[in-house]
Design a protein around this nucleic acid. Sequence first.
DNA 1: CTGAAAGCGCTAACAA
DNA 2: TTGTTAGCGCTTTCAG
Lengths: 354, 354
Amino acid sequence: MKKHVTIRDIARMANVSVGTVDRVIHKRGEVAEDSYKRVQTILEKTGYKPNLIARALVSGKSLRIAVLLPDPSQDEYWEQAEEGIKKAEHEWAQYSIKLTRHNFNLYQRSSFKSIAKAVLKNPPDGIISAPIFFEEAEEFFHHCQQLKIPFVFVNSTLASAAPLSFIGQDLCQSGMLGAELLHQGCNENGTYAILHIYDDIKSSRFLKEKEKGFKDYFQGLNNNGYQVKSLDLNYTHLKTLESELMDFLSEESLKGILVTTSRGAQIVSKLLKRRGKKGVKLVAYDLLKENTSYLKKGIIDFLINQNSKRQTFVGIGQLINFLLLRKAVSPKYLFPLEIITRQNLNSYLESENH
Amino acid sequence: MKKHVTIRDIARMANVSVGTVDRVIHKRGEVAEDSYKRVQTILEKTGYKPNLIARALVSGKSLRIAVLLPDPSQDEYWEQAEEGIKKAEHEWAQYSIKLTRHNFNLYQRSSFKSIAKAVLKNPPDGIISAPIFFEEAEEFFHHCQQLKIPFVFVNSTLASAAPLSFIGQDLCQSGMLGAELLHQGCNENGTYAILHIYDDIKSSRFLKEKEKGFKDYFQGLNNNGYQVKSLDLNYTHLKTLESELMDFLSEESLKGILVTTSRGAQIVSKLLKRRGKKGVKLVAYDLLKENTSYLKKGIIDFLINQNSKRQTFVGIGQLINFLLLRKAVSPKYLFPLEIITRQNLNSYLESENH
DNA sequence: CTGAAAGCGCTAACAA
DNA sequence: TTGTTAGCGCTTTCAG
């Protein structure tokens, strides 16, 4: 009865041809004012919805999307991100999407700069990236905006760059969650610490957001029995790092530690295992191999999953929705803060397959 | 260069027409043996993948899917399931899918029987359902199988019925998780209980799986300091139920309770609030309004999310993938066991919007 | 400025 | 048993 209205239907109703209707739908001009208005009203009145299937079919032209992310071989987190890219590639194979990798060195801002530049040698239809290096990213994506190349961010964002979409998590809330996981259950007074252990001092920008949440949580308790510490450690001198950490762990009142980086989690886990847990809780991030192994052993109590695989998968999807299917995309796509324990770990690992 | 192989390409390569190729692809016979084999080999050699877009476009016929689920107005869990159905309806609007609701009474097996029967008055192309009433479901879905109507199950399954796909969670593992959440942190000895509070005694089948996991967890600890209890209570006499529960809560050694049903969670929360938490941990299921409210108040410590909304959403998707896009669907689609606390609740509620 | 027409890849009805 | 052909709804030339 109320079958789907097609472009043909409205052409008939407006006494014009399908070509004209298409012109007003895509606002590509060359339409007489009155025809335009006539078509426009009918479009609205009928609530016309284009058939995305047909649209995708006809535009056999293959999109080219640039993947501007850290080298997956440098870091397991970004290796998982690459898996999401691969999965998307497979999922959207029908649309003959062309993804080209542009991997930069995670620890070298100059690398980002040059690799990013190379992307524009042959401008793609869209870009997926992570603005890890603040200034460089800001400059580059401003340039993209001028070139009208849409881009999405995963993992972290850059408000000033106004991406088509940001796919990630609320980092401040994530810090609060970390605090809660350390503190809940045995509501003991004591010292709770947030540890940042990294290579490049400049990536700390995002870690500070987690730290804010962490501190806010304890502040909100209205209880003076807690001491909150934050510690920034540079990874470059492993020996001194370890001894500094051992000092830290020897503190009697220490009740819980949130480690914000994956490297950090591995080091702290190792040391904590060596000296014995002694009631110190440990919360870390992401389903990396070492992390899940320490989780199983009971050294790590909880993991918070950022799901980098799904982030990139969704990111590519958003880009395709926008570029190919011309669907609306939400500017912010925040993932839930997933809590992983020994007992639900497998359910997460297995559902990754979907 | 290596553009996508089309049905036309292989027709040319096999010296037949597209019609013949189509016939062998869909195995609808009427093809000479040698043509068949020739086409088949070329199909395999080229690794031909049909263009799902084109396929969906041409089959303009609208699928009719029957939704055979409990009345959403009876229960908030099933209300959320209905939201997933609505979301799917919206998501797939392009394909002009027709969903017809057949809601049965959650507390009345006879209702299922008659409503299910009505579904077959005008046989749909596919069915999404939840086999809550064992015998009735078994009989009905056997019938569906004979009629070659594919069906998917959400929430719980029926192995003997061999659904096209089951979308849900591992209930036994879910029980283990519940146990872990109660027990972790303060590793105190004491009594841990699993409570089933329901209206219809026969739905207990699924609850027993959770109970098994719950018990297995404590058994696995190799520690005699724990006492594990399970309690089955019938909801019909609220007054006696409450007094029984109060007795139960008064036990000194009680450390934690896992409540397996949503009604149960509300009653236990109320009572626990009245008499004071006194260190008793409470874990319940699902993001229902009352549950989240008790979670925020700190009466409930953790919720395990079964995500009925996404279950039905995915279920419809599986059906459409199979019926319309002819994609392969996995017979089991297990969701991760999501842990909800005060600090990540909002991140889950908000991500529902996607 | 507008309309007619040729496809995108696949399906199915109809001829041969 | 085969090949031919007319669409599915939309986009995009290319003539008027």
